[in-house]
Design a protein around this nucleic acid. Structure first.
Lengths: 340, 340
DNA sequence: ACGCATAATTTAAACGTTTAAGTAGGCTTG
DNA sequence: CAAGCCTACTTAAACGTTTAAATTATGCGT
């Protein structure tokens, strides 16, 4: 593996000149520039990113850590997200370092480790929440990061998020147009900010349509298939005038629970009970019936987050520093009335 | 951020001594050792991994690139795999660098880039095949890697793989025990080595049971839902004495295609047509009926591959250099005879 | 008290870059 | 034609470690 010294020797110049040519800095005559480039080509020289990193005190690495899913759940967005981040990063000669957030550790320790050892120049933070300790820590130490998700309104930090409120509003509006009036919502615990935004969208759409929300129609639970299944069962057991004809779920996993509960009760999902999910996981289209769901623009989230982060690392101020993207409702048979 | 010089100054020693203490090399008196450690603690000093990397000409990074899935398909193992690799790596102070294998590029170029810029010390290679150009290249340049999957038998390189042959044999044996005699197989094109191994397991189990394989029962196709759906339809249209009563698929995605084709034909999956998948994706348990599938020990694959790779990077020779792990058949209702 | 072996520590070079500061030489300018 | 100014380079220090080699301190046997 050849170094800048080898190139300099072969081109008959100093290493400084080579460096200037490679970085398009300094003033170099066209003749020497060509000689240097020739030498680079002949030797197949590639600058060492580590040596560059030492000099610049930058690693050109972006750290990304996600919460591992329990084995029976799926992470519908991880692959696309990492992929889009890595691609965007590569365009700027950055790379993505994935590290696990093992449970035993204090959540913040790993981030601290990564910073202090100089492994990464910045972070993308997924799964944010109110009073997120990682955000608080990174703000305190002034280390660059961009969050995928929001947090406390009085914390000023850069984020990209998907508009859960708008998404749920779309979903409910869609159901209203189909004639549904009694719409239930499989929600998340109050501790989830993301869940809160989504729930608000449901509520807002119902209020705007002047429809009452029966308290029984909103149930908060962990993101879990069986909970969703059971809750749907209780809904189906309500008296006819209170029984929901449609369910919007905060995730595809819960939507599947609702679908299966309905099917097991002898109902036809779609005509008898409409179901909408959130995330548009790749399998949704293969379910029976295929599930209507809200597709998040994951690739765009990853791309914009990384772009913003690189600006931050360079000392620039990304503008806008907060980006809210719209999800798109993918309509499938789980919200179609006609019996297929 | 303090450096080794700061520590040396504070402890009243040279930087060399600090380095010896930190790495447990050289001979340092207990008194100075304590003084150094004290200084380290007081300053919150952490060695710069970049500076270390420059000196050692090592990045302590493991590169991992995977083929992105088409949007309508899912990668059932990616999350677990990256997670297990990252955890194993961290135990040895290594980290995982994920990079996309963008289509436009020549497949090998990206690996070359990573090597020549000194980004990574080794690779984990997923999705191997016969005459795999990445393997050939890495062998030629002598760069450390461990493959997840096998390749040409006459190429000697370290790999970890899941025993597809044994897995399919398990699946078929399970079906035989349930009384099935006409078993079909949704296979992959001949170009897929993994597919070849799995298919051989199916064939071997049938032969051992002295059962004839009707040529119509083995259909090779790309890993695709719709193909699987259509092929199953043609099977169901066969005359009763040739119509399969069970289907083993080389992936969950194709198994789902088979299940849906059967359901749409008015058959009950399980009693009327048994279906077995491969991968045990997290959703399989939530399908109707839940899908019997072969679970790959992904976490162990990741862990062992990384351990082997780190040995290689250190110049050691991992033993064994080839590891074949058994998948486990998870039996669910898609292969149960009783009508639920 | 001396020489010697060994233990403890320091010096300085090296890893592969970048870049501030310095230096020639040619060109303009009054 | 000297003073100054570009242009096109080079020199050398710096980034934060490790480590071979050199140096100094310590203890031991006689």
């Amino acid at each position: 593996m050849s170094t800048i010294k080898d190139v300099a020797r072969r081109a008959g110049v100093s290493t400084a000149t080579v460096s200037y040519v490679l970085n398009n800095t300094g003033t170099v005559s066209e003749a020497t520039r060509q000689r240097v480039l020739q030498a680079v080509k002949e030797l197949g020289y590639r600058p060492s990113v580590i040596a560059r990193g030492l000099q610049a005190r930058k690693s050109r690495m972006i750290g990304y850590s996600w919460r591992p899913m329990p084995p029976d759940q799926f992470n519908p967005i991880l692959e696309k997200f990492i992929h889009s981040m890595a691609e965007a990063a590569e365009r700027h000669d950055y790379h993505v370092l994935t590290f696990p957030s093992s449970i035993p550790y204090d959540e913040v320790t790993i981030y601290q480790d990564m910073i202090e050892s100089g492994r990464v120049d910045g972070f993308i933070l997924p799964h944010t929440n109110l009073n997120d300790r990682r955000i608080r820590y990174l703000l305190d130490v002034g280390f660059p990061f961009v969050a995928f998700g929001r947090s406390n309104p009085d914390w000023d930090f850069p984020w990209v998020d998907v508009d859960g409120t708008g998404g749920m509003r779309q979903a409910v509006t869609h159901l209203l147009e189909l004639g549904h009036r009694r719409i239930a919502c499989l929600a998340w615990p109050e501790t989830s900010l993301t869940g809160q935004y989504r729930l608000e969208g449901y509520q807002a759409a119902m209020v705007e349509a002047n429809l009452p929300i029966d308290p029984a129609w909103v149930v908060r639970t962990e993101n879990d298939y069986y909970h969703a299944y059971q809750i749907t069962q209780t809904w189906l057991a309500l008296p006819p005038d209170r029984r929901p004809t449609a369910v919007v779920a905060l995730s595809d996993l819960m939507a599947i629970g609702a679908m299966n509960a309905a099917a097991d009760a002898g109902l036809k999902v779609g005509p008898d009970l409409a179901v909408v999910g959130f995330d548009d996981a790749p399998i949704t289209g293969y379910l029976r019936p295929p599930l209507t769901s809200l597709r998040q623009p994951i690739a765009e989230v990853g791309e914009r987050a990384v772009t913003m982060l690189i600006e931050l690392v360079r000392g620039e101020t990304p503008s806008p520093a907060q980006v809210l993207l719209k999800p798109r409702l993918i309509v499938r048979d789980s919200t179609r009335l006609s019996k297929t």
